[in-house]
Write a protein that binds this DNA or RNA. Structure first.
Lengths: 199, 199
DNA sequence: CGAAACGTTGACCGTTTTCAATTACAGTGG
DNA sequence: CCACTGTAATTGAAAACGGTCAACGTTTCG
């Protein structure tokens, strides 16, 4: 249920897209800058950071390969967060103006973008659902269920637990404790980077 | 920055929309039911509820007048949550099939829906940002800033603090304590349903 | 008028956070 | 090839914070 690079290549005219490499610690865009493009992350990891009025910085999201960035900014005048490269990223940059122009004449393209955003909305709602689960054990369990595939449900971790911790709003220490706790309760089994849900 | 009833009336052909009243405690739609329509809430309050695998129920969102419901479900086969009426609601029901058909031929309409969803995405990200703020005081403060208008920043409450509590993921008791705490710190001033941010 | 829901505050308890320390591991450069 | 370095993974203990339960005044609405 993810829109792939190929989907995008098919949907977006070649004239307004470009592949670019960003080294670690560089920025795809910064908060307050005018919106010039949206981005499809082909490889690497990018962190979305928002600067609050009181000077603090919070991580909005950690994007990984296959995800799109700033689609929602397409109709905003300026970006609402920084996009900082965590680990060297290859990115498809899609220019805003020609994209919007093209969309205004192509129902297919608009409809496609609409689907991407609808997908985003559902995903964000899932994340918000997770946050409403109070205890660390239950929240982590819900996350695991959300990411498990097959029967019995299995997760092959392709990211660090630290990243997961940030994503679901807990400290990494608590994640490790929750993992240990779930394991002791016999509700999961861990084998390297593979987690199996039991019961 | 909200799409109004008039906007919708203009964008959506009259043939596929209809005004309906829902009494309190009824459902606009239920989780797992096939998606037949999207909804614009004209008045009243509707609560989005998701049933988790373990049997628990969490509130996804509390919708109030002016908000649209289930736009993201337009491309899903079935609803992902219940929409239960909290207080008697007047709703514009927009049929899915004719809407999609119309969208596939009208770039304006697609583009319009895209904007609605983009707006949704930004709002959901803001909510997620809030949830990353740990302490109750700071989180409530951020919410207040987000909703304040003018200089000095003022919020005229048109909803209950209980609702706000659910929205930002705290219990109502904690909200009242945070309010009292912020007031004692001189960071806000309360006067009936009006809150003023200071400093 | 009466019931239900909101608003408010106190006390206590359980959980997460925070701080701290230790192990394991992957990449880097000599 | 191996120290060296940084980060992830892991666990412990104490402190801080929000959740829960309880009680009560107030407002709202049928």
């Amino acid at each position: 249920m993810q829109f792939t690079l190929e989907d995008w290549k098919q949907a977006i005219p070649a004239s307004c897209r470009m592949i670019t490499d960003y080294p670690s610690s560089t920025f795809l865009f910064r908060q307050q800058e005018p919106v010039v493009a949206i981005y499809l992350l082909i490889s690497g990891q990018v962190r979305l950071l928002r600067h609050l009025e009181d000077g603090s910085v919070v991580t909005l999201h950690i994007s990984r390969h296959g995800e799109t960035l700033a689609e929602a900014a397409l109709f905003a005048s300026h970006y609402h967060c920084d996009a900082r490269v965590d680990s060297a990223a290859r990115v498809m940059v899609i220019d805003k103006a020609p994209l919007l122009d093209r969309m205004s004449r192509s129902p297919e393209l608009s409809l496609y973008l609409t689907q991407v955003l609808a997908h985003q909305v559902r995903h964000l709602r899932s994340m918000l659902t997770l946050r409403n689960i109070r205890t660390a054990d239950a929240r982590l369990c819900a996350w695991l269920r959300l990411h498990a595939r097959g029967a019995p449900p299995v997760i092959d971790m392709d990211q660090t637990w630290k990243t997961v911790a940030e994503e679901i709003g807990l400290t990494h220490e608590v994640i490790y404790r929750a993992l240990a706790s779930l394991q002791k309760q016999g509700r999961i089994k861990r084998d390297g980077s593979r987690v199996t849900l039991l019961g």
